[in-house]
Amino acid sequence: MNSALQWVVGILIVVTCCSSAFYSFRSRRSGNRRDSGLYASRMNISIGLMLIFIAVIQMFMFTGSSVRVVVGSVFMLLGLFNLFAGMRNHSHFSRLPR
């Protein structure tokens, strides 16, 4: 069970890493300000989810040492910040006219 959960979370980390790279390239290549902002906010959401998944692996999958818990907590806080900032920016840029 634990091994299967590690594989699932590992696959989710790879998927969110690839989607954040994809949205980063789309954001930089887009000429439209609205589309660029939407892609950048989706990139922030992907990075936030990736950091949260890394924190889950760090904090819950292995034996707990104090350094591992601190690193997992920092990743969790950074991930939550990126997730909420991306969601806020996505709502802002989606309201802009085309």
Rank of each mutant, 00 (worst) to 15 (best):
A21I: 14
R95P: 01
G48P: 05
M61Q: 13
F25L: 11
F22M: 09
L77N: 12
G86N: 15
F84E: 01
V15T: 14
G37Y: 00
A40R: 09
F60V: 15
R28M: 10
I11K: 06
M1G: 06
R29M: 02
L5K: 11
N89S: 13
V8M: 05
I57P: 00
L78M: 15
L96T: 04
F25Y: 10
A4V: 03
V14M: 09
T16Q: 09
R68P: 02
I11Y: 07
L5N: 07
L80P: 06
F93A: 11
N82Y: 13
V67P: 00
N2L: 00
V71Q: 10
L51Q: 09
F75H: 07
A21P: 03
C18Q: 08
S3T: 01
S19Q: 08
M59P: 03
S41F: 01
S73M: 00
S20H: 00
M76Q: 11
F93S: 12
P97E: 08
V8A: 06
Q6T: 04
S30D: 09
F93H: 13
S66R: 11
R88N: 13
R95I: 05
L83A: 14
F75E: 04
S30Y: 02
F53K: 00
D35N: 15
F53Q: 02
V74D: 07
G72F: 06
L96A: 09
V74C: 10
S30R: 06
W7I: 12
L77P: 08
R88F: 13
V70Y: 14
W7L: 11
Y23A: 03
I13W: 01
Q6P: 00
C18T: 12
T63A: 09
N44V: 04
F62Q: 04
S41H: 02
V67M: 02
A85Y: 15
F62S: 08
H90L: 14
D35R: 12
M61H: 14
F53W: 02
G72T: 11
